[in-house]
C-alpha cells in the first residue's frame, strides 16, 4: 500500500503525542474495512461496530507500545477477528470458537464508478458472479483485491494456509473469467490490437 508511510506517521503521532486528530484519521482510514470484516463474522451491525471500537479502544489505551507492532493492518484485522470470534463464543456459550465454525456472510460493494470497460450491465453481472461465490471465497477475494493484502497476510488474518488462499482466489478468477468472456468488448480489442502492434514494432526495430 502506498499510504503505509502516512499510516506510520499517524502511529508515531498517536504514540508520542497522544494526538487525537491522528487517532481519528487512523480510525476513519480503517473503519469500513474492519467493520465489514467483523460484520461478516457477527452478522450484526451493532456488534460489528462494537468489535471495531473494542479494537481501537485497545489501540488508544496501549498507544505507547504502538511502535512495537510490525504490520498495523495485519494487527488490526487479527484483533478484529479475535474480538469478533470471542463475542461469538460468548453468546454461543462455547469455548474456543474458531473462524472455521463461523458462517461467514459477506456482500461485496457495488462497483460504482463507471469505467470505459464496465457499463452498468457488465458491472451488475460481475457483482452477481462475485456474490454467488462461497462466502469465504468472497471474503478472501475482497481482502486481496480491495485491501491489497498479500496472500501471506490474509492467511495470518483468517488463520488458513496460503494454499487455501490460492484455491479461493483461483475459484474467484475462474468464475469471473467465465463471466467476462461473455462481454467481448470491441474497444478492448482495439486497445489490444494497438498494444500488440506497438510491441511488434518495437521488437522489429
Amino acid at each position: 500500500m502506498d499510504n503505509s508511510q502516512h499510516i506510520e506517521l499517524l502511529c508515531k503521532k498517536i504514540s508520542q503525542n497522544s494526538d487525537q486528530q491522528a487517532f481519528k484519521e487512523l480510525y476513519l482510514a480503517y473503519f469500513d474495512r474492519l467493520y465489514k470484516f467483523a460484520f461478516s463474522i457477527l452478522h450484526s451491525a451493532e456488534f460489528a461496530e462494537e468489535a471495531v471500537n473494542d479494537v481501537f479502544l485497545n489501540i488508544w489505551q496501549k498507544r505507547n507500545s504502538l511502535k512495537n507492532i510490525q504490520s498495523l493492518t495485519n494487527y488490526l484485522f487479527i484483533s478484529t477477528r479475535n474480538t469478533s470470534v470471542n463475542y461469538l463464543s460468548k453468546f454461543r456459550k462455547e469455548r474456543n470458537t474458531t473462524l472455521d465454525d463461523v458462517l461467514v456472510r459477506f456482500e461485496i460493494d457495488e462497483l460504482t464508478p463507471e469505467t470505459a470497460f464496465f457499463n452498468a450491465e457488465v458491472r451488475s453481472e460481475i457483482e452477481q458472479a462475485i456474490n454467488q461465490l462461497p462466502p469465504k471465497t468472497k471474503l478472501v477475494f475482497q481482502m486481496a483485491k480491495i485491501e491489497g493484502l498479500k496472500y501471506k497476510e490474509i492467511a495470518q488474518i483468517l488463520d488458513i494456509s496460503v494454499n487455501t488462499i490460492d484455491n479461493h482466489i483461483a475459484t474467484a478468477i475462474k468464475k469471473l473469467s467465465h463471466t467476462l468472456k461473455k462481454f467481448r468488448n470491441e474497444e478492448i480489442d482495439f486497445i489490444l490490437f494497438q498494444l500488440f502492434t506497438k510491441t511488434n514494432k518495437k521488437t522489429l526495430k
Binding site: L111, T112, F117, I126, L180, N185, L192
Partner: peptide
C-alpha cells in the same frame, strides 16, 4: 480480453462507503 478485463476489474477502485457511519461510530 479476459486478462485485460480482469486486470481492469482488480484495479478498479470502489467508491468509499459513506463516511457518516464511521464518524458516528
Amino acid at each position: 480480453q479476459v486478462y485485460f478485463q480482469l486486470n481492469e476489474l482488480w484495479n478498479h477502485k470502489q467508491d468509499q462507503a459513506n463516511n457518516s457511519q464511521a464518524i458516528a461510530a
